[in-house]
């Protein structure tokens, strides 16, 4: 099972804000099975989708070198359920970004209507976790491409995001290419 709880990034401004969409469909087993006879996207997966949106925003600011983990959901409220056919628009905004973590505010909208809002705390794993990779770098690069993050990603000055060298090198290594 893939742990992808967003479908695509549609906006991404480094260090500031990211917007991703998630389409809810009956083809997802958990939508059908979560509450018998009342198909909805489980709220915990909306939190996860917003955490993926915000987590990648935090991680990108450090060129994806920090190991960013969701440490805490400080607040969360749901205004309405997310039903099959809905498109959720997840917006993550960085409220505070520091060396050891970040606070991110997230909202989920269906059209113009607020569906959920929350506040998340992300932590950077410290030196005790040195050498522990959260992802294989080449797979990670593939994932952020799949999310369209690099298609819409912009630096604060408006220039397009570039792929960090360490990820390109990992990809080349995985593909058996020599980039030296």
């Amino acid at each position: 099972m893939r742990w992808f709880w967003i479908d695509r990034f549609v906006e991404f401004e480094s260090g500031h804000r990211a917007v991703a969409v998630k389409n809810v469909t009956l083809a997802e087993e958990h939508v059908l099975d979560y509450l018998q006879g009342y198909p909805i996207l489980p709220p915990s997966l909306i939190v996860e989708g917003l955490a993926q949106t915000g987590g990648l925003l935090v991680s990108q600011h450090g060129d994806f070198l920090e190991r960013v983990v969701l440490a805490k959901v400080s607040k969360v409220s749901f205004q309405q359920p997310a039903r099959p056919g809905d498109t959720l628009r997840y917006t993550a905004t960085i409220e505070d970004l520091q060396q050891d973590g970040a606070i991110v505010r997230g909202t989920s909208h269906i059209g113009e209507t607020l569906q959920a809002e929350l506040q998340l705390v992300f932590a950077h794993l410290d030196d005790r976790f040195q050498g522990v990779d959260q992802f294989y770098p080449a797979d990670f690069l593939q994932m952020i491409r799949t999310f369209g993050l690099l298609d819409v990603g912009r630096n604060a000055d408006g220039s397009p995001l570039t792929i960090p060298r360490h990820l390109l090198e990992a990809e080349a290594l995985a593909n058996g290419e020599d980039r030296s």
């Binding site: 440490a71 805490k72 400080s74 520091q98 050891d100 973590g101 606070i103 705390v121 932590a123």
Partner: peptide, 13 residues
Amino acid sequence: SIDFLDIVFRLEK
């Protein structure tokens, strides 16, 4: 323990 990170962020701000 993780709350302290959150608290420190908020106090700094």
